[in-house]
Amino acid sequence: MTLLMDTVAVVLLLLLVVGLLRIWLGPEPADRMLASQLFASTGVALLLVLAESQAQPALRDVALVLALLAVLSTVAFVTRVMQVARADSRGERRDV
């Protein structure tokens, strides 16, 4: 059973690494933010599976915190880009 959980954990880790490719390729900043969202959900799943396979209850709390902090990173990105977009729509140029 733990062997299966470890293989699932390895597969999730590979998906995380593949997500890096999207960060490198991503044309717009929004795509890079998507990859950070991918990191959040895959990371939470990875941590939960590892918490089970290695009997580490602390990892579940790490997964919880990761799920919350991912939202903060997205909010930070949105408020930063939204100011630029709103400034553009008001016609005043702002150096980004």
Partner: peptide, 16 residues
Amino acid sequence: ASATAAHLVARTVRAT
């Protein structure tokens, strides 16, 4: 978390 994050990012994409 991911539902709100996706909504925020989508709104930003439309704004830009």
